[in-house]
């Protein structure tokens, strides 16, 4: 699917460039950029009018909790896509992080260490490990100039294998409230994982907008040759976005196991890469690079989730909801193509 998305965008776009066509309907340009916000507003209004019990804290929390991990992974993905790349390994990196973590807080690795230290390690180490695997992705992409889709396919396949080997393929079940607070705890009545998600979105938006690194990410995605000639450390920038994507995947992996009270290397993060890419595309980030919005990614994930929720809440079967999701992605990509100059 992700393959198709990239292909759809890049191929026709370049042939279009050849003969040149005006970014004709500037309405399409506007929609591609801000349409996601409009769609979200319409969805919320529709539900307020027609779906019973929509405006409750319960609905709010449930819907947001559903998309937390997708958005967190999606933020890393947004950065990667902003450079013109893609990261297929995110789901597998989630599995690795999720598989490593329980050994710490159950005291399996360091039985004699104090519990709070083990909890801290169970959070810090898996995230760091996922980041290191991200570095490996970046190394392949930047150091060997391997196409991102191929480079990250390596860990997409091998990563889950590593996670399974680490756990012997066993399901690890646990009950560890102190650790699980990252998903199940509440602050101001809102689940902690939602706060984490918001923090990640806002931090990344700030980095993209205000820091040298953020601007360089967009410059690399916008025109790599020009960026290089202007002294942008293209290799380092690329490497770092994959590290960021790895770190995000690590966080998401921990949230998943905390939510489930179980770590199953076979299932953690299964298919997340596609959900994340879909959220990024629907949110208005250009799949060809050079324009990115992390709040858009949040909105994109919300739209996909709300469409499904709306359909289910109004008695439409889940299979139809999937088709709606596919339609959303097609519309987003189509809008992006209309806009190209």
């Amino acid at each position: 699917m992700s393959v198709d998305l990239k292909e759809m965008l890049i191929k026709p776009a370049s042939s279009e460039e050849t003969e040149g066509r005006q970014p004709r309907p500037s309405a399409a340009a506007w929609l591609s950029r801000y349409g996601a916000y409009l769609a979200l507003a319409l969805l919320v209004l529709f539900n307020l009018a027609f779906t019973p019990h929509f405006a409750t804290m319960q609905t709010f929390s449930v819907n947001l909790a559903q998309i937390c991990t997708i958005v967190i992974v999606g933020v890393g993905m947004t950065l990667v896509i902003a450079t013109g790349g893609i990261d297929l390994s995110v789901g597998s990196l989630m599995a690795i992080a999720g598989a490593i973590a329980p050994g710490f807080f159950t005291g399996y690795y360091f039985p004699s260490a104090p519990p709070y230290l083990n909890i801290a390690l169970s959070i810090a180490v898996p995230i760091a490990v996922a980041g290191l695997f991200g570095l490996f992705n970046g190394w392949l992409v930047a150091g060997f100039r391997i196409q991102p889709i191929i480079a990250t396919l390596v860990l997409f396949i091998a990563g889950r294998g590593i996670a399974q080997v680490w756990t012997n393929g066993d399901l690890q079940v646990f009950k560890m409230p102190a650790f699980q607070a990252i998903a199940l705890g509440h602050v101001l009545g809102v689940p902690l994982q939602i706060w984490i998600m918001l923090a990640v979105v806002i931090l990344a938006a700030w980095v993209l907008r205000r820091t040298v690194f953020g601007r360089q990410v967009l410059a690399v995605g916008g025109n790599e040759a020009a960026a290089r000639l202007s002294g942008v450390p293209v290799g380092r920038v690329k490497c770092l976005v994959y590290v960021a994507s790895g770190l995000c995947s690590g966080v998401a992996g921990l949230i998943v196991i905390a939510m489930n009270s179980a770590a199953d290397a076979n299932l953690i993060g299964m298919g997340t890469e596609l959900d994340a890419i879909a959220a990024v595309a629907v949110g208005g980030t250009l799949l060809s690079g050079g324009r990115a919005t992390t709040t858009g990614t949040l909105v994109g994930a919300l739209i996909i989730q709300l469409v499904r929720y709306t359909l289910l809440a109004n008695g439409v079967p889940d299979s139809a909801a999937l088709i709606a999701k596919a339609a959303l992605i097609v519309i987003a990509v189509w809008l992006q193509r209309q806009e190209r100059a």
Binding site: R215, N223, A225, A227, G290
Partner: peptide, 19 residues
């Protein structure tokens, strides 16, 4: 191909190396 970053503003294009 080696100069402009088409989507970026005049401001960002001009200060790319200076950033």
């Amino acid at each position: 191909h080696e100069g402009i970053i088409p989507r970026m503003s005049v401001r960002e294009n001009m200060t790319l190396a200076l950033l």
